[in-house]
């Protein structure tokens, strides 16, 4: 008798599909943001970002010259209509996809009564959430 190819479980499909489509959506937003940035609609001019990086300025110097201080948070959320803000948002969205993927996958595992792996996925999600919220103190 011929063996059948094993099927992926629901939690795995949920994780994989959310990340896959989240990254693709983030990529489209990044393209739109990059085009806007070259049209001159920016929070900080794109020419400044690229020149400062190319000159080898440190992160502190770059932000000091741009806005006066390090952003210390999700600065782009207040600047979604600008090219650089939208580009940063698209990049972050692509990365962020991991969080709902882990949490919904965890929920699917709990629904299947797989408490151990549901809990592990939940803990992973909480660690990612701590990182997203940026609640670990940083030097300014």
């Amino acid at each position: 008798m011929e063996e059948e190819k094993p099927k992926a479980q629901l939690a795995a499909l949920i994780y994989g599909e959310i990340v896959y489509w989240g990254v693709l959506l983030g990529s489209v937003i990044v393209i739109i943001g990059s085009v806007l940035a070259f049209f001159g609609n920016n929070y900080v001019p794109a020419s400044y970002w690229l020149s400062a990086i190319w000159k080898g300025e440190s992160v502190h110097e770059i932000w000091k010259g741009a806005t006066g201080a390090l952003p210390m948070g999700h600065w782009y959320l207040a600047h979604l209509t600008t090219g650089d803000g939208l580009t940063a948002f698209g990049l972050s969205l692509g990365v962020f996809a991991v969080l709902p993927a882990l949490l919904l996958s965890s929920a699917a595992l709990f629904k299947d009564k797989d408490v151990v792996y549901g809990t592990l996925a939940l803990i992973g999600g909480i660690v990612v959430l701590i990182a997203v919220l940026g609640i670990i103190p940083m030097p300014s």
């Binding site: 983030g26 943001g33 690229l50 390090l70 580009t87 990049l91 990365v95 660690v127 990182a131 940026g134």
Partner: peptide
Amino acid sequence: ATAIWTYITYGALIAIFAAPWM
């Protein structure tokens, strides 16, 4: 995807530069 949030919130990820790499 966990580590990068530290760099994002600190301002070390410059999106215009990182976008084509992504």
